[in-house]
């Protein structure tokens, strides 16, 4: 379970000063300009339950990628609380933080961020290598995961020899390598073409139900969010505007912005879902 409580992230020459200024009812724009202030996340509170798949949705610059990075402290929150399974992760030291990242949190990036000098297998095994797992053991585990994501037998390939969709599968396998219970996905499928994106979504949904990972999934694509998410979080200018299921957002939009955002969304058809969820809905 991931809990965020009144989390702020501001960027600037003096984070504290920016924070003080931005939390006022009417912040002084001149001061903010002088501090070169950019507000990433404004007072976000969110609870992701165990095994739940939550989509952070919003336009570019709405703070969704910033918010997901606060969960594993790739970015330090300026203020607020972040808890994982009840324990505060902002107070832990660098060593425990590395431990937490390498054992419990997996992450997938939009630009796949794979190491070009390593083979596909070694890339998948990277989190295990960081953790100090022995070579034979981590290679076995990597091969196992490559089968899972449909890249059986490609372990010895070079990363550059793979297509974009395959590289993203490698990224997914890498995130799963350490068998974490939390998955953070930062627009993993945004750079792929529509057909491959759809395939990967389907495959990912099946995998995530099967493995039961707690997942925070960032996307700017309404259709994608409605298709895969248990709940959708809509963000605007660093603020969470509405949290709810696809149905809630469509039938009871919190304001005009939400209405406009979701109005062109394709209502998910039953056939979009993998059999298990389709059965549950039916």
């Amino acid at each position: 379970m991931i809990e965020l409580e009144d989390v702020w992230k501001v960027f600037g020459t003096d984070e504290r000063a920016v924070l003080v200024e931005t939390r006022r009812p009417e912040p002084d724009e001149d001061v903010l300009k002088r501090l070169r202030a950019v507000v990433g996340v404004r007072g976000a509170s969110l609870c992701v339950k165990k095994g739940e798949l939550v989509c952070l949705m919003g336009l570019s610059g709405s703070g969704k990628s910033t918010l997901v990075r606060l969960v594993n402290r790739l970015l330090e929150p300026s203020t607020g609380r972040v808890r994982i399974d009840g324990s505060d992760i902002l107070s832990i030291g660098p060593k425990s933080l590395r431990e937490l990242r390498s054992r419990r949190i997996g992450m997938v990036f939009q630009s796949h961020a794979l190491l070009a000098h390593l083979s596909v297998r070694d890339n998948v095994a990277l989190p295990l290598e960081i953790r100090g797992v022995a070579r034979t053991q981590r290679e076995d585990r990597a091969d196992e995961l490559l089968v899972r994501v449909g890249l059986e037998g490609l372990g010895d390939r070079r990363i550059t020899a793979l297509s974009g969709g395959m590289q993203q599968r490698v990224g997914l396998a890498r995130a799963l390598a350490a068998d974490p219970d939390i998955l953070l996905m930062d627009e993993p499928f945004s750079a792929l073409d529509p057909l491959i994106r759809h395939d990967l979504q389907t495959q990912f949904m099946a995998l995530s139900r099967e493995l039961g990972k707690t997942t925070v999934f960032v996307t700017h694509d309404v259709d994608e969010a409605f298709r895969i998410a248990d709940r959708v979080v809509l963000m605007r200018a660093g603020r969470i505007v509405q949290v709810g299921t696809a149905d809630t957002l469509l039938s009871q939009p919190a304001d005009d912005y939400v209405r406009r955002f979701v109005q062109n969304a394709r209502r998910p058809a039953l056939s979009d879902f993998p059999p298990a969820k389709a059965r549950a809905i039916a």
């Binding site: 990242r101 054992r103 949190i105 992450m107 990036f109 961020a113 190491l115 960081i130 953070l184």
Partner: peptide
């Protein structure tokens, strides 16, 4: 690439 370094950090490097 900054993203490659970020990925390594995210896995606890």
């Amino acid at each position: 690439p900054a993203s490659v370094r970020e990925a390594a950090v995210a896995f606890g490097a």
